[in-house]
C-alpha cells in the first residue's frame, strides 16, 4: 500500500493515503484503521481517520520511543512502517447497511421547501430522491457520531444557510452542497434541514458510542409524524 508519513504537531503522525475523496482511498483508510485496531501499539494514544488520512497520536515520553537516543517521531515512524509493511488491501467483509427512519418536512424538516424550490422540484420528488439513494459513510467527525456521507443526487443539492441556526436538534437530517448528514447531537449548524430521525446516532453508554462507522452504507426509510412520535428508541434528552 502506498502512503506517506508526515509529522502532525510534535505528538502525531499523519498517514496520507491520497489527496482526493474516493471510495478507493476510503478503503485504504479503513484498512489502516483496522490494522491499528488489531496491532495496538503501546505508545499510540489513539488514531483519527478522515477522508484520505489516518492520524496517529502518540505518547512522546513512552519508553519504546525514547530509547537509543532517537527522537520519538523517528522511532514511531519506524515502528509504523515495520508494522504496515505487510499490510494488504484485502477485501474486508461486505459493508453493513443501516436503515435510518426519517420523518420528512413539516416542523421537523423546515428547509424541505427551500431545497425543493431551489432545485425546481416538488417536495415529494425531493423526498423520493433522498430516500431511494444508498449513501456511503466516508467518515465520522465534526460531532460525536456525525456521519459525512457521499452519494447524494446532485438534483437535490442545496447551499448551506447563509446564517447558521444556533441550535439544530439531534436527529435532524440535512443537506449541504451535495452531501447529506444527520446531526448526532444538538449543535449550531448551517445545513438545510429536510427531516428528523428518532434514532440516536450518538450513544455515549454503548461501545462503540457511534451508531454509524466509516464504510457503512446508509438508506433512509420515510416514516410519518405519528411514527416519529411513537418511536420506542427515542432519545428524549435531546428533544
Amino acid at each position: 500500500m502506498d502512503y506517506q508519513l508526515h509529522p502532525f504537531g510534535d505528538n502525531g503522525i499523519m498517514i496520507e493515503l491520497g489527496t482526493t475523496i474516493s471510495l478507493d482511498i476510503q478503503k485504504k483508510v479503513r484498512a489502516v484503521a483496522s490494522f491499528l485496531d488489531q496491532n495496538r501499539f503501546e505508545w499510540m494514544i489513539e488514531y483519527i481517520p478522515a477522508f484520505t488520512t489516518v492520524t496517529v497520536l502518540y505518547d512522546m515520553g513512552h519508553h519504546e520511543l525514547v530509547k537509543d537516543g532517537h527522537y520519538p517521531y523517528d522511532k514511531a515512524c519506524e515502528k509504523l512502517r515495520e508494522g504496515m509493511a505487510g499490510l494488504l488491501l484485502e477485501e474486508t467483509q461486505d459493508p453493513r447497511v443501516v436503515e435510518i427512519p426519517v420523518c420528512y418536512g413539516g416542523e421537523l424538516g423546515p428547509d424541505l421547501d427551500f431545497v425543493a424550490s431551489h432545485n425546481g422540484l416538488s417536495i415529494e420528488e425531493v423526498v423520493r430522491i433522498h430516500k431511494t439513494t444508498t449513501y456511503n459513510v466516508h467518515m465520522i467527525g465534526f460531532a460525536p457520531g456525525f456521519p459525512y456521507m457521499g452519494g447524494m443526487s446532485e438534483k437535490i443539492a442545496a447551499p448551506r444557510k447563509e446564517t447558521p441556526r444556533l441550535t439544530i436538534p439531534a436527529g435532524s437530517v440535512g443537506i449541504a452542497g451535495n452531501q447529506t448528514g444527520i446531526y448526532s447531537i444538538e449543535t449550531p449548524g448551517g445545513w438545510q434541514i429536510i427531516g428528523r430521525s428518532p434514532i440516536q446516532l450518538f450513544r455515549p453508554f454503548n461501545n462503540p458510542p457511534s451508531l454509524l462507522q466509516a464504510g457503512d452504507l446508509v438508506t433512509f426509510k420515510e416514516i410519518t409524524y405519528q411514527e416519529y412520535i411513537d418511536w420506542e428508541d427515542r432519545d428524549d434528552k435531546n428533544h
Binding site: A33, I45, E46, Y47, I48, P49, L57, I140, G141, F142, A143, P144, G145, F146, S184, F202, P208, P209, S210, Q213
Partner: peptide, 10 residues
Amino acid sequence: RYGLQKYGVI
C-alpha cells in the same frame, strides 16, 4: 477522553 475521537467524540 481519549480513544474515541475516531467516532467524533471530542
